[in-house]
């Protein structure tokens, strides 16, 4: 990622000199080729090595999320500046009177007596749409959210937040004519709601954490899917494969695009059309055995109850 960014480091310079940019993927040679065709016939070719990794697919359906919020990215960005940069998680909650709150998540009582707790209230009219379950709240990672906000603010897009009960993923979406971004973040599950596995929502079953890990983020899955399709690029979309999609396929072309992403099986040849970028899959390793066998662990803990 770093070397890829390096190519585009100096935007003003690139805008002045580069006439077109060609990005090719050479799977045989494990190379991503970026060619910058500059003025005076200069061509800069960057060969980037890559490793094919197992694709982590976030399974989500924004339609089925109980709560939904939409606000200009600026409002949210102004809201998160009040939190310290080192803060790991924030809790978003729907309070009385349609107000929405953001507060820093503090793990336990003893810490509560040492940490400064910051809470911010946003009135309903600062949002474009508010359709939330009263009293609902979710806790998620602030760092990734900040990253997305920076991006959204730069592109001046409204950000929509879809969420359900604690423990179910929260989906942040940005929509535009040429760009569609989905950021799926795990949310912290409630200690109380652990007693019963959360409703399955027709998709993958999230592992119910064992008691010891009650406060951990369930699955450290952060996937950012960026699907950018340039209009008039001429390339026909790749044929749609029959997919085992969790929800009925819709005819909306954008939806199809998204489902193709979701339905991809590990090992599928990389898409020709666009890139799918993953921002690291594991945030805080909690012991080596946990991550790969999480589902099995969950089954055990369920039996205990």
């Amino acid at each position: 990622m770093k070397s890829f960014l390096g190519i585009f480091r100096s935007l003003p310079l690139l805008e002045k000199t580069v006439e077109k940019c060609l990005i090719l993927l050479r799977p045989r040679a494990s190379r991503l080729v970026v060619q910058l065709h500059c003025k005076y016939g200069v061509t800069k070719t960057h060969n980037l090595a890559f490793q094919e990794c197992e694709r982590l697919q976030a399974v989500f359906d924004t339609q089925r999320c109980a709560s939904q919020l939409c606000a200009p990215a600026r409002v949210l960005a102004e809201a998160v500046v009040h939190f310290p940069p080192t803060l790991a998680e924030v809790t978003l909650g729907a309070g009385p009177g349609g107000k929405l709150s953001l507060r820093n998540y503090v793990e336990d009582e003893t810490e509560l007596k040492k940490t400064m707790v910051t809470e911010l209230w946003l009135a309903e009219d600062e949002f474009q749409t508010v359709a939330v379950v009263p009293g609902s709240h979710i806790t998620f990672c602030l760092k990734e959210f900040r990253g997305l906000l920076t991006f959204a603010e730069a592109s001046n897009l409204p950000l929509t937040i879809h969420y359900d009960v604690p423990g179910r993923p929260v989906v942040f979406t940005l929509d535009d004519a040429v760009l569609e971004v989905h950021l799926v973040l795990a949310t912290l599950s409630d200690t109380e709601s652990n007693l019963q596995p959360p409703p399955t929502n027709g998709v993958s079953h999230p592992p119910a954490p064992s008691d010891d890990f009650a406060d951990d983020l369930e699955s450290y899955m952060i996937a950012m899917e960026t699907s950018a399709y340039e209009e008039g690029s001429g390339a026909p979309p790749s044929p749609t494969f029959p997919l085992r999609t969790p929800h009925p396929a819709e005819s909306d072309p954008e939806e199809e695009e998204e489902e193709e992403e979701e339905g991809a099986v590990p090992g599928t040849p990389p898409h020709k059309k666009f890139c799918s970028l993953f921002f690291g899959s594991v945030l805080m390793p909690r012991g080596p055995s946990l991550a790969p066998t999480q589902e099995v662990l969950a089954e055990d803990s369920d039996n205990e109850y």
Partner: peptide, 12 residues
Amino acid sequence: SLSSSSRIVTHD
């Protein structure tokens, strides 16, 4: 804030 009511931030 941009809206009619102002934003309240509390720090404990």
